[in-house]
Amino acid sequence: MATLTEAPPPPPPASPPAPSAPEKKPPRKRGRLTPYWLLLPGLLWLVVFFALPMIYQASTSVQTGSLEEGYKVTWHLATYWDALSEYWPQFLRSVLYATAATVLCLVLGYPLAYLIAFRAGRWRNLIMVLVIAPFFTSFLIRTLAWKTILADSGPVVSFLNTVHVLDVTDWLGWTSGDRVLATPLAVVCGLTYNFLPFMILPLYTSLERIDVRLHEAAGDLYATPLTTFRKVTFPLSMPGVVSGTLLTFIPAAGDYVNAELLGSTDTRMIGNVIQTQFLRVLDYPTAAALSFILMAAILLMVTLYIRRAGTEDLV
């Protein structure tokens, strides 16, 4: 550092910070409207083809009339009551099947996501491709393949029969007799299969962010591998668990493809009812009311779940 034998006088401040009179100037508008122009077309699209239809549907659900004479808004709220009292078993079934599929997806998907994130090494990319690639085969074709896999004379059913698993599931009401097809088990199996990637991908994303050294640190602090998982890995992967369960549960609850292709009339879900009412029976008010109840129920459950799980930024 410089040393001085003789101290010079303090220099006059070259240009002291002096407040000067604020000049009145019109604020320059550098593209203040740009965001609105950018948003306009897309939002308009969503308003007209997503939000507006919801309103139309709400209005339809309180209309009465017939196809021939036309419908009028009569605030006939009894439609809701009638729909619920007639179709509550399908509603209940949807929730049960979707819950079962979601739990299965979590149980099956977690090890695979963990494997890709921490244990796959140079195989990581290949496994990722294999998880995503089935998407490119139409999901209907893949769902139909389950008809072959679970066929009555197929190897899966005869194996399950030999080890008497089917006796247990029959007793539980999941299957009936020597069949798996056209039973709740087949539908849940199909739902699980169809939405599994939606569980694996968010799980993987949140697992991949975890620093591997945290595992080592936990081990260093006397945690067994199981404790490490329970106390460190799993809590840190919660965002993935939350968005994964939502991405699985919501479409599963509204699905009717699996119930139609793999199930029977005893496994009809609420999606099947809405589809039939809308496209075959043409009872629009009932269909609209059912669809509205489904939407409200799911939004309610999702809100409660998110509040419980405490992860708000899902987008």
Binding site: P53, F278, Y284, V302
Partner: peptide
């Protein structure tokens, strides 16, 4: 509100969107 409008279609069962859109088109 913009964020919710974008998030909602992803959180909505397809059958609900399908049915309501059909209602609009029919109307």
């Amino acid at each position: 509100s913009v964020n919710s409008l974008i998030f909602l279609p992803m959180a909505m069962p397809e059958v609900v969107m399908a049915a309501s859109l059909l209602t609009l088109f029919l109307n």
